[in-house]
Amino acid sequence: MDGVLGIEEYLVVASILFCIGLLGVILRRNVLLILMCLELMLNAVNLALVAFARYSGNMDGVILTFFAITVAAAEVAIGLAILVALYRRRKSIFLQDLNLLGR
């Protein structure tokens, strides 16, 4: 419409959010927070997709976003279920305590 707000702005915001999420995944030790950061990354991609779709006038990107939201919800559900089950046995949700494998 007015054209002042370009796609670049959206993409910059999306990529910064993606990187924030990635940093969180790499740095945090709490599995709950890692899962949240993964969600952040997926959301960043969603923003980029919608922006691309809007600026090229193509619907497919938005539909892909729709599926991405579905997938993210499913992943979170499974992740939390595993986390709870693991917590019952190991009493910890920190990565440094989850080290049974590879010893």
Binding site: M1, I7, E8, L11, V12, S15, L23, Y55, S56
Partner: peptide, 20 residues
Amino acid sequence: TGAVVAILLTWVGEGSTIRP
């Protein structure tokens, strides 16, 4: 993350800004 941001920022500008 720095590398990712750098790649993305270099690219910004190739796209079209006209919103249909």
